[in-house]
Design a protein around this nucleic acid. Structure first.
Lengths: 353, 353
DNA sequence: ACCGTTCGCGGACACGTGTCCGCGTCAATA
DNA sequence: TATTGACGCGGACACGTGTCCGCGAACGGT
């Protein structure tokens, strides 16, 4: 029955003193209960906790922290919330931190606003700061220096090659090696590399992996790869991949394998191939990267690389929380996480002909 | 050249007094600069700001807030970070709030832990709390009552039907009406409803929309719909949709239109149809809901409903921030946002035969 | 040399909490 | 009844900041 709709008359309790009075206790006694100090009558504890539940009173965190209590808060800087893998990492990190008793303060860094965001975190006396995603290297290095000056530990997830940065990151080169070996085993010898041409550091790693895999089989990397330069704006990866694949299909000699920078690009390429009447995987193979949900949903499903997000995040959290009491390291901590190949329906034997 | 790797000797400035000393100013003067008080020599302001930039000092936010300064922080409770539309709303809300000078405190509510999370927000003296997603009604109603008792305004996004809750929500019934009218206009008269059968409140609304659209054309809703009950666990929506569609395909009389609860379910159904040799949209039509990225990436792309997320979020933010100074409303604020049909390649004329 | 103005100084108080400590109360025990 | 714990009381201080206020130094104009 909709009986109790009067939502507790606004208690307006502003501090422990006001809270303690109607309970018939002293402010200090309440404080002792809240902080679990010994030497208290169990009935007193019970009384306080019941009043706490009834009034919904929450002691002022700012005063507590001012008095030196730990904030138990980690600041997390995201590049954006549009990249599914980054959001997955965020979600898992948040869960791990919460399980260990830490709250998360999440901010999206608009390019150029990094300074203010980190300042805000420092001002809130966050115990550590995590960066997830790809940022402008100079800017993030400056932020990391600020954190260091402040004695606050930091960690960067998935952005290798930053000077002075502690990093946990997927071994993207190894990921590309796994993709290429899979394709090579299937007999492929000519490859279109979609979206791997230029850009942030994470692509250099990728290209390194591609070259390494090819050269390990005695192949000339330049001779057997096609790297289309699609000059238009890269608005979304699906269309980008579609356009890249189209420009490859316009060539006289078509490669048999299309290697995408990520799953969206791979799916865009898949679409372009299907539109051109090329059957996948019979006539050509397609691979993605990241093992997103979508890679399972297409027809055919896409062969891709799983990031081992759980390993990444727990490694990151373990290390970071282990640093909390410690003095800051002088040498940065760098760790890479091995990826895992997930074979889908989009790859098959190279067409012999 | 990698010259300046020494990242500013840890300044270890702990308060404005320590900060002010080397600048050669009094603590109070620095405080006045920081708070933009009048009557200060421009050169003094300049000096302080340079020192601020050099040392990276950030005054203790806890002390500031304790002294009564606004926290300018909004707490956001998420059901999870796995639902793409919810994450989109979060991202947009975060951006809007930041543009208006508010920080966001984001927490994921594990079922049952709502109490602690809201307490934490209250303890941090958040100025308002937003809930995004679907929650256990009783639990969230209890949280809302707590917030009310505390004098903190709240807003729920996309969860209609909560007692005492201020809500901004998509008009899902209207969304279903739009889908059904689109299909009816194409000549469809028999519909499989996938994932709409039972569950949270948001589905009742949907079913209402479906019935309304059918009855407006003088059709018997029960006679022309098939609602498969797939009893297996609903692990992920893609497989769920695939299984639901399979069970429909096993029937003697197959419907011509497959109406999915969301895009993933629609894409799962699409896959099942393609596997069964049914060509879409020639032999059957498929619709989704939410207009996620994926709906554009499949072959064929999926006809779906756009949530107008931007309108939803700006409406929410406008109203909520407008409430801040005000006394709490006694009657809840409820507003629905109209959806928008996005026609893709997955719908076509009903096959006459 | 005198005066008024401008502006920084520094003491004081408040915000809400944790913690310490001496004191009072009450009940159980000798 | 006298003694001893057990336990709650309430005063005091600290944490870092914003703000108020009276004071004094420096400066420019007469």
């Amino acid at each position: 029955m909709p009986a109790r709709r009067q939502p507790l008359p606004p208690s307006g309790i502003r501090n422990t003193a006001e809270f303690a009075r109607p309970v018939g206790l002293a402010r200090t006694t309440v404080s002792r209960v809240l902080n679990g100090q010994p030497g208290l009558d169990p009935r007193t504890i019970e009384r306080v906790q019941r009043a706490l539940a009834e009034t919904g009173f929450a002691p002022n965190a700012h005063a507590m922290h001012l008095k030196g209590k730990r904030t138990a808060t980690i600041g997390i800087c995201m590049e954006d919330l549009a990249t599914p893998t980054a959001v997955s990492k965020l979600a898992m990190l948040q869960r791990v931190l919460r399980a260990r008793g830490f709250a998360s303060l999440i901010e999206v860094l608009p390019p150029g606003a990094g300074r203010e965001v980190v300042r805000h975190f420092l001002s809130l006396r966050v115990e550590a700061v995590v960066f997830i995603g790809h940022f402008v290297p100079e800017e993030i290095e400056a932020r990391i220096a600020e954190l260091g000056a402040n004695g606050t530990p930091h960690l960067v997830i998935d952005h290798l090659g930053l000077r002075g940065a502690n990093t946990v990151s997927l071994d993207r080169a190894a990921g590309m090696v796994a993709v290429m070996e899979h394709l090579l085993d299937l007999g492929h010898r000519s490859f279109a590399l979609l979206g791997l041409s230029k850009g942030p550091v994470s692509r250099h790693d990728r290209m390194r992996g591609v070259r390494a895999a090819l050269e390990a089989r005695g192949l000339d990397a330049d001779a057997c790869t096609v790297v289309p330069d699609y000059l238009h704006e890269r608005r979304n990866d699906f269309d980008y991949g579609r356009n890249l694949a189209r420009s490859v299909l316009a060539r006289a000699a078509r490669p048999t394998a299309y290697v995408g920078y990520n799953d969206e690009i791979a799916i865009g390429a898949l679409r372009a191939l299907q539109e051109a009447g090329v059957r996948v995987p019979r006539d050509a193979s397609v691979t993605g990267f990241n093992h997103q949900e979508i890679s399972r949903m297409t027809v055919p499903s896409v062969t891709t690389i799983d990031q081992n997000i759980e390993t990444t995040v727990t490694t990151a959290a373990d290390w970071l929380l282990g640093q909390l009491g410690q003095p800051l390291r002088s040498r940065p901590f760098v760790r890479t996480i091995p990826p895992r190949l997930v074979v889908g329906e989009s790859t098959g034997p190279a067409r012999s002909g």
